[in-house]
Design a protein around this nucleic acid. Structure first.
Lengths: 141, 141
DNA sequence: ATACAATCTACAGCTACTGTAGAAGCAAGC
DNA sequence: GCTTGCTTCTACAGTAGCTGTAGATTGTAT
């Protein structure tokens, strides 16, 4: 495959920081179109595939789910459609992330107490285990 | 099952806020011991099982993995062992959570820009889609 | 007696990949 | 032409932690 416009699956994977298996997986679930094949059955990609897969990977890096990315791709495939939907997906995603941050911070404050409370001794007296076992941590504070 | 010390799986589930299927799942993976059975084959539980399952559920609520909980349970099953291990698990878990918070906050700042940048218009000009597609967001800022 | 709830086993499905097996294709060196 | 080693192919199993379902029993209330 010397023609630079015809990429093998490994080239596509390398250029986008994706694993080869993952490229095939995205094809299976319909995020990437079925590409053309060589006579011997190998997949052939081009620059448009690189752009599409980059989009997918950036979206995943930003924490969008595969379904969200599917919607965003559908939008960018139909450039005349209204873009409010994309904005809505992004805002919802932002809310989700802020919620997860808040939950993790609650968790963190609970754990700071637990983790600091013990540094050796008999397990029977372990305050970490006690804290997890007890209702106190979750109900009284 | 009128004897209050003999709990059916549904009672155990209700008392611990667990689904019945999940109780059986914990048995499968060895977090809960195989309980005694009635003559007809139904599982019988007692107060110790309630405590153990509560421990598991609290641990899961705190974000501990099943494997971490397995270690903590093993420790509390052997009360003479040193408790430093439990403390180490808790501290490691705390570090994990702090890392996840940091990652989500980075994500959040990236998304705040993306989500605010668009509120309608042609998808072709959508800044949300552009932002995800572009390298700019990830490489230049 | 009949209805309905709870339980049983066993297995499929969820997310988003990742890894593996076994076969076949391809390029380079000798 | 042959071998070596890399890439690719299909197909499937495994990861975490459950959840849901099917179809068969069992228990309980009316």
């Amino acid at each position: 495959m010397s023609d630079p416009a015809r990429l093998a699956i490994g080239d596509l994977a390398r250029q986008t920081g994706t694993k080869v298996n993952t490229v095939r997986f995205y094809e299976d679930i319909g995020l990437l179109p079925c590409p053309m094949r060589t006579a011997s059955g190998r997949r052939i990609y081009n620059a448009a595939d690189v752009r599409r897969l980059s989009f997918i990977r950036h979206g995943r890096t930003l924490g969008f789910s595969v379904d969200e990315i599917r919607s965003l791709l559908a939008l960018s495939d139909q450039p005349e459609r209204d873009c409010g939907e994309a904005a809505a997906i992004a805002r919802q995603h932002l809310r989700d992330i802020e919620e997860r941050i808040a939950r993790l911070q609650t968790l963190r404050s609970a754990l700071v107490g637990v983790a600091a409370s013990c540094d050796g001794g008999r397990a029977a007296d372990c305050r970490v285990i006690e804290a997890i076992a007890g209702v106190a941590l979750l109900n009284n504070e």
